[in-house]
Amino acid sequence: MSMDPFERLPLPEPESSDAEALAPEGGNAVSDGGFLRNMFHVFTENKLAVISAVFLIFIVVFCFIGPDLYVTNQTNTQDALLNSTQNSPPSSAHWLGTDESGFDVLGRLMYGGQISLIVGFFAALVATVIGIAYGALSGFFGGWFDAALMRFVDIGLSIPVLFLLIALVTIYRPTATMLIVVIAAVSWLVPARLIRAETLTLRTREYVQAVRVMGGTRKRIIGRHIVPNSVGTIVVFATFDVADSILLLAALGFLGLGVPAPQTDWGTMLSNGVNFASNGYWWEIYPVGLCIVLVVVALNYIGDALRDSLEVRLQRR
């Protein structure tokens, strides 16, 4: 008599007294609402991440809705010079004082924050998308194709980022769009490597093999299986990359290569403020410095928490 190797043999019913002893290590898996709910639960266990998320929401509201509530001139230098006192300390008229051109510093924080956040977010988005596509293709196809693509990445990573940025920004006139492109151009290399490594692992998994056996196309394998299963790595990286992009923009601004005036970004504000450090105009340095530091720290905490949230082993079983 042939025997179906997959036929399940009836298992003896455990005696109730043995149930506890037979439970898997870590407890029985339970369904308490699905992946997203578990993820949210893990995330909220990290109090710093929650505080960071709230802070980040506050900053976004501050930068994008704040100017509608706290209306100031941030574009007309002539009017600012004419109608304001330069470098005046905080007062009821200007809550965080004015800068060297007479612009209200609080309003400028909002105005500059818009550019910093937009550039940071979109540069990270573009870098991540490019990195995903590049890394997934490289890892999936392997062989000489992978080697060639990764050597290119190695070359890119061997060039100092700031040097490359300065060169690019010097060649191309720095606008917000151009800064997004330029920062993304130097930021996609790391995610490309991460995704490529993830792909190398995923492509040998059984479910990928199964798709191959069933005649699934490469496009389908990459698009429907490899990339979605790398989402944890992608989301975490993207979060950190937003922070990195904001810092890169701040560095460029500090070097005088940020967006052209009268536009501003936080790095440019900091650079301008430093010119007056010796004059004791603290309001032109500390607030914007704090904004940069706190937003970057907040993004890093959020990234840490997301990494934990997306790690299945840390989710409640």
Binding site: T75, N76, T77, Q78, D79, A80, L81, E100, S101, A261, P262, N272, N275
Partner: peptide
């Protein structure tokens, strides 16, 4: 020069009028 940058920005704003 910080002052030249300020001057250029002020004039840009003024011409924009």
């Amino acid at each position: 020069s910080t002052s030249l940058t300020q001057l250029m920005n002020a004039e840009k704003s003024s011409w924009a009028q």
